[in-house]
Design a protein around this nucleic acid. Sequence first.
DNA 1: CATAATCATGAACCAATATTCACATTAATG
DNA 2: CATTAATGTGAATATTGGTTCATGATTATG
Lengths: 196, 196
Amino acid sequence: MPQERPLRADAARNRGKIMEAANRQIIAHGPDVPMEAIAEDAGVAVGTLYRHFPTKADLVRAVLDLCLGEIAADAEAAADRIAAGASALDEFIAFSRMVMENAADNKAVKAAARALGTPIDEGEHAQQGRDAMDRIIAAGKAEGSLRPDLTVDDGYLFFATVPIDQPLAIRERWFTLMMDGFRSEVERSADAPDRG
Amino acid sequence: MPQERPLRADAARNRGKIMEAANRQIIAHGPDVPMEAIAEDAGVAVGTLYRHFPTKADLVRAVLDLCLGEIAADAEAAADRIAAGASALDEFIAFSRMVMENAADNKAVKAAARALGTPIDEGEHAQQGRDAMDRIIAAGKAEGSLRPDLTVDDGYLFFATVPIDQPLAIRERWFTLMMDGFRSEVERSADAPDRG
DNA sequence: CATAATCATGAACCAATATTCACATTAATG
DNA sequence: CATTAATGTGAATATTGGTTCATGATTATG
């Protein structure tokens, strides 16, 4: 077992700069951003990217995993608040809305959503998020506010189908419809103006 | 106003072959398929594609518009059946399912869905489909089976968010959830196994 | 069938991008 | 500080894919 020698100081520094730059660039321009752009943003040469990540796909994967991690952390926070007494329905809706809004203007999240079901969501972050979602949904069902047959996969489905390229109003409407599909019958939304 | 001189015989023939080939190739591989591939499939040289379509985007647009036309025709057929006495809810669901299944393995439909809200859906086919959807939804509301605030845009939203890259079971589940979101309260789905 | 207008051909051109590699720098070590 | 292993550099390479254009073929017309 070859001991991992620690990174040289400059190497560690550059690795950080690369991750930050890649994060910025992918958030702004999506995973198709050229390696050159990331290198320039990081203030290093392209070759350096390749010293740290054998291939572009590896770099992108690392960034997307980071995104997934942040979302998973939010899910955990929501689950914790529920455990501490907060309304499961409120937390579920707030978390879902947050995911939607992130996906709308963060192309990394968008790409991560599109990548669900691919190798990307097999990292530990994905599992962490899945567990938190499970807690939220179980609480919602116990509370009677979410449909009894709801599963974590439904949450992922939500994530994966956010209408990213549509205008805000459309996205809001989609959100209403999805949430109404997720609720138990008695709990339907009140924001529809003209219903009996 | 320059009179459109009719196409020369060989030109007309080639135009047909190109449209067919482009349709095939885009259905199979999506709009990113190389022009070379389309040319080869059509049995002509790339230059010929450019004689008929100034740019690749124009060719793709033509193919997607064709797809939209077929879907619009299906919507009209459904609307007509409703006018003739068929259940609006049944027709709405059947049409929606058809759209979903098409989008699943027809990359042209998928691309057309993604292109909603872009210049592509401003052709006459788009308007035709919109009108038919309007008739279907109005009937469903009159029947009391669709939520009173449903609009044609919601139908487009459905179209645009089909979870294309997910496995069949996931897509079916999504369909259930969406349809439950579209129905009026009293009409919720019965395919959920474990609800009281 | 002769002529001109139209059309088809496909090699060449160009731009974008991932990736490599010979060489230059820099940090760790004694 | 001398040595060397690790690291950084960025021009060069390879590939892909859209687009053009000089040339040759085909069709329409009188």
